[in-house]
Design a protein around this nucleic acid. Structure first.
Lengths: 351, 351
DNA sequence: CCCACTTGCGTAAACGTTTGCACAAATACC
DNA sequence: GGTATTTGTGCAAACGTTTACGCAAGTGGG
């Protein structure tokens, strides 16, 4: 054994000062003389003193030094590289500030909200990062009224922010995708979406509808396929139905890459070749989208950047004197990644 | 504000007993009468009492209630769904036992070993999960001598385990892959491997070599392409060189799916069709391997299962009275997932 | 009926740290 | 040179919990 853990008293005894002096010197209190401070810092290094977080956190106020990330649904992250990227970005973002990331997984028996309540109630974390928001998100509502520092991934309202968030501008992206496909001659569009009322669904859908409306071309049609977010079987069925109709779309926008890749699979299954018979555009640029054949045209949502921004914002909130701190927001404009899954519209051959 | 946090004294006052009695009742001490215990438990629920972890952890002994997962290198998890699956599995595994998972990301400036030292020194976690082991792993060495509870993903030695680990039987898998490809007529083999001395590299390579030796066919050849683990450019170059030689292999085994998918890309780039000109087999069955075209034949390493097992083992160590606890091990036999990237050997057409 | 033991609970110390208060010495002001 | 202020440090309380020890009442054996 490398010996018991050193305490502040060990340092104090070594220097012949009181524990209070050591504490103040290490905390940077202005009432300590520079020489004493230097001696204390040196001694602390010498004996290998590390403050006991439990004791620090016990004496009123001081936080736990942890921020929490809630792992939402079971499908999250299993399908793609998204979660891994996000976590890695968060981890390095917080590590720079000496903050530890703690991770709460939701089991089947408890709701995410109850887990959040528990974390807030037990002070297990000083701040929280919450994933993909939904409309009228109860987590946001709770955290805002509780005055607990947090950053959400996804805004909840387009108006004045009630809290800090990071989001991607899905509306602009989907409008851009529509314009591109329209310019390539496509008129019959498909949208593959999910059942759950996530805010990103709202924005991307609205962006698409707004772009269609702005174009004002009555020849443009839109068919929609909907399935639960992580129900693979129903997803396949819904997409197959979309692609098998008599007036099937020639261009399909998917809410995220996981859906777009299923469109690719289903198209191959139905004998449709992409992009000749069908153009497909996704969203997120997960690692699989590059490897799929044909490569998926999609939008890069810059996961790592948004993760780092989330970390920075939460750190800012924790450091703020006023509580709640003034909300910060970041809306990232995704960049279109052109690959092989889209192309000019071709009139279907006579059946 | 929902009022200040309740302490054990609030419960005691409400019942007219001492704080010590409440503490003992909640801890299940046998010296407390059943009626008192019941009253205490009821009162604790009523006032919404939650123990203050900092105080618990401060009074000698008690751990922090956290276990740590170290996020190793920057490439880890960004390439595929592996990290996401592993974390999700760990999280639910620990959640069942009321243990929180805490995540330390390695920044560029510090070594993983120093981070581990710090965590152990500051008692920030009661136990640790460490990722892919390498040969003579300094992390394992340190943790074993420190007597700190941990589970490694990947064994370090084939002999008597010095600690608990979970691993996949890469040797058996690669032998199986070789036998299958040999039966399909392949004789010229390629192995795509990495530069770093990870134990999984060792086992998979040895499994392949042993299978070749056991076959005893002098007509079998093996060419090897090596690149750093996460250096995309050098990976491409090494694989291109492997596939461009005059006697290029007709069947390639890749150490993991990320490499195998690059083989697929590079083959397409060089005009080789898979599986007609080249059979490719990977390892891990990440989500991209299903979506690649052709679908990648690979081994399912059951990430979620191994993550849950890791969690269970670490919980067992933490609960053990003796320290260090007796090591547990789990060697998972990966199952071959047959897809379209392999097929019978075809003699190359005359050039 | 005396003693030993068990049962049930309270008292108080301890964990390591921060911080309000007190106090001595040094410095500044008039 | 007396008083007011600043500077530097120590004392002790406090955070919420666990636990060794002690004490009173009850139980059983002889």
């Amino acid at each position: 054994m490398p010996g018991a853990r050193k305490t502040i008293k060990d340092v104090a005894r070594l220097l012949g000062v009181s524990a209070a002096t050591v504490s103040r010197a290490l905390a940077g209190n202005s009432r300590i003389s520079p020489e004493t401070r230097a001696r204390v810092e040196q001694a602390a290094r010498d004996v290998g003193y590390t403050p006991n977080r439990a004791a620090q956190s016990l004496v009123a106020g001081r936080g736990s030094g942890f921020v929490g990330l809630i792992l939402t649904d079971p499908g999250y992250g299993r399908e793609d590289s998204y979660l891994g990227e996000f976590i890695a970005g968060l981890g390095t973002g917080f590590a720079e500030h000496g903050i530890d990331l703690f991770l709460a997984a939701i089991s089947e028996t408890q709701s995410e909200l109850s887990v959040i309540r528990n974390i807030v109630g037990t002070h297990r974390a000083d701040g929280l990062i919450i994933g993909r928001t939904s409309e009228a998100d109860p987590r946001v509502e709770y955290l805002v009224t509780a005055g607990f520092p947090f950053v959400s991934h996804g805004r909840t309202s387009l108006e004045h922010p009630t809290h800090s968030w990071v989001d991607t501008d899905g509306a602009a992206a989907f409008a851009e995708a529509f314009d591109m496909l329209y310019a390539l001659g496509h008129r019959r569009f498909g949208l593959v979406t999910i059942k759950e009322p996530m805010t990103f669904r709202l924005h991307r859908t609205e962006g698409l509808l707004a772009a269609i409306a702005q174009r004002g071309d009555p020849g443009v049609s839109l068919q929609i396929a909907t399935s639960p977010r992580y129900d693979g079987a129903r997803r396949h069925d819904a997409i197959a139905a979309l692609l098998s109709g008599p007036d099937r779309p020639t261009a399909v926008l998917a809410l995220f890459d996981g859906l777009a890749l299923t469109v690719l699979e289903e198209a191959a299954h139905l004998g449709l070749s992409v992009p000749e018979d069908l153009s497909v555009v996704g969203f997120d640029n997960i690692s699989s989208s590059r490897l799929a054949r044909p490569g998926l045209t999609t939008f890069d949502s810059e996961t790592t950047r948004s993760a780092r921004a989330s970390a920075r914002m939460l750190v800012a909130q924790l450091a703020a004197k006023t509580r709640p701190a003034a909300p910060e927001t970041l809306l990232i404009r995704p960049k279109l990644v052109l690959r092989a899954s889209h192309g000019p519209m071709r009139p279907p051959p006579r059946g």
